[in-house]
């Protein structure tokens, strides 16, 4: 299925390079967001990660009974260096948001800053604005973490 979609659409893959962008999100996967919203999320994640050098990932889905330990499990397997990664886990069905920071990331993102970002996120979520809340939360977190000197972003 995916192959035929990619063959007929914006498939940028060549013999030597992989596709830079596939259209999986708009067809097969049932995402709760529209394409512009997905683009906002994508840009917020990518830009906050590049700006800070930390690795922000966003999980949306059920977190089970013990949300905190589930979020910490997810953080441990989030790829990259978990010490420097930050996981935003949002479970709209349970109305829970968890932010997990590795120990290196926690030095630049103290729990207090995370709590502030979580507060602004829950405000937006309670108004029904998932994407806006996530984007603003990411902005707050990356503003707090700042840009380390010597980090090459390009």
């Amino acid at each position: 299925m995916t192959r035929s979609i990619e063959a007929t659409s914006h498939d940028t893959a060549t013999e030597a390079t992989a596709a830079a962008r596939t259209d999986e999100a708009e067809d097969g996967l049932d995402t709760p967001f529209t394409l512009p919203e997905l683009a906002r999320l994508d840009e917020a994640l990518t830009m906050s990660s590049r700006e800070t050098g930390l690795r922000f990932t966003l999980y949306m889905g059920d977190l089970g009974q013990r949300t905190r330990s589930r979020a910490e499990q997810l953080h441990a397997t989030s790829g990259g260096d978990p010490a420097e990664s930050v996981l935003l886990a949002v479970s709209p069905g349970q109305r829970v948001v968890e932010v997990v920071t590795g120990h290196a990331a926690a030095r630049r993102l103290p729990d207090r800053a995370c709590a502030l970002a979580v507060l602004s996120m829950t405000n937006a979520f309670a108004a029904g604005d998932l994407v806006g809340g996530i984007v603003n939360g990411l902005r707050q977190l990356s503003d707090q973490a700042g840009h380390p000197r010597g980090l090459k972003t390009h």
Partner: peptide
């Protein structure tokens, strides 16, 4: 869930890496 993309679904997963004492925050709405 894409039939054609589930290539090598049994390949090794990255092992959970301990990231030391974790920080963060929790919120409900």
């Amino acid at each position: 869930s894409h039939g054609a993309t589930a290539v090598g679904a049994s390949a090794a997963q990255p092992a959970p890496v301990s990231a030391g004492p974790l920080g963060g925050a929790r919120g409900t709405w």
